[in-house]
Design a protein around this nucleic acid. Structure first.
Lengths: 193, 193
DNA sequence: CGCGACGTTGATTTGCCTCAACGATTGTGG
DNA sequence: CCACAATCGTTGAGGCAAATCAACGTCGCG
């Protein structure tokens, strides 16, 4: 029972420790969802219903602008949380989409029951605080890279940080995440050898 | 007593409610610091000692690269927290500087006593989780703007969001925050009328 | 097999940078 | 309180990184 959530419990254990009892409370708040390749976990216009923890597979969060181009804002792989917090907090329709890149599985923590859960297992409040603190500073670092490196430097750097991800994912997603065009990425790669 | 921290208590009240007792516990963990115009709140190489809440004035967080140019990564005005979480979490020397733009005052929450405080006033854990969640999503939005707008559009947008800030702050800081040169900002403004 | 999604390559264009010289404003010491 | 320096902003010429557009290769899948 609950075997499927094991990666999540292990992840939590890295930051806080829960008693057996607390773990089973948490378990009772979780559900999960399987997605096929290219399926949407969240669609623009929907209110983001909760927090997603990636148990298997990978995702990207993107926005579609007026001209129809997709701008990738974030991505996630196993053991990452991915959520549109703007929509979840405000309970307003999301401006983003979240799409599965591969066949994937997520654990779902429903927004509506989250506060309730945090009261019963206060350690989780801390867990999320720490996670968010890291996510926030990583995102600031990313901005710093965007402004201080050329496109090519960003690609090399990203490739060093997440070699596995670069293998798994179509190039146009990487290019958009790094803030340039697929054509440009192709030209960078051509130089490599 | 503690009058000076009033803006902080009011800010906290918007997110969680503390008892009189909890408020006075919090108070006993706070100190404050006054800075003159252009003085550094945090200097590159230092380990960031804690969380700063801006009671009065404004700041910017920046990095200096090899070539000596300053890249502004974040800014903050009254009622914002500003901290290098990377350094604070890891307890390693910071890569950033935080400088006062005007004469300013901050409340200081020491990292070393923070966990202790959170145990005595668990609501604060929640407060910071919520604050960080907002900061994180604001930063993601910022990335989305960086990639989907031209420099000029970003400036117009920023000017709408924070008109007061644009008035108060030297243009070269705005330019750097928005990711272009002061010269370019100057040319945008020349067109305006 | 053939179609659609993805990647490549080249020619042209453009947004913004760099560098340099010149105002304007602020602040500081004599 | 003025003079002069430092800081900040403006303007223009030339250059480059990356976008755009278009045409063509290639691979996986129905």
């Amino acid at each position: 029972m609950g075997e499927i959530y094991k990666p999540l419990f292990e992840h939590i254990r890295k930051f806080v420790s829960l008693s057996k009892e607390e773990e089973s409370v948490l378990l009772s708040y979780l559900s999960h969802k399987k997605l096929k390749k290219k399926e949407l976990l969240l669609e623009q216009g929907q209110i983001c219903p909760g927090n997603y923890f990636i148990l298997e597979g990978c995702f990207f969060l993107f926005m579609t602008d007026e001209s129809g181009t997709e701008q990738v804002v974030q991505f996630g792989i196993e053991n990452w949380w991915i959520t549109d917090y703007v929509s979840m907090d405000s309970q307003k329709p999301s401006k983003f989409n979240i799409r599965a890149i591969e066949h994937s599985t997520v654990a779902v923590l429903d927004k509506s029951r989250q506060d309730d859960l945090f009261q019963r297992v206060p350690q989780l409040e801390r867990y999320f605080r720490v996670i968010l603190q890291r996510a926030f500073s990583a995102t600031l670092q990313r901005i710093q890279f965007i402004f201080s490196m050329t496109g090519e430097e960003r690609y090399r750097h990203f490739n060093n940080l997440f070699p596995a991800f670069v293998q798994r994912v179509p190039q146009y997603i990487i290019a958009s995440y790094l803030g340039f065009t697929p054509e440009f990425l192709s030209k960078i790669r051509a130089k490599k050898v």
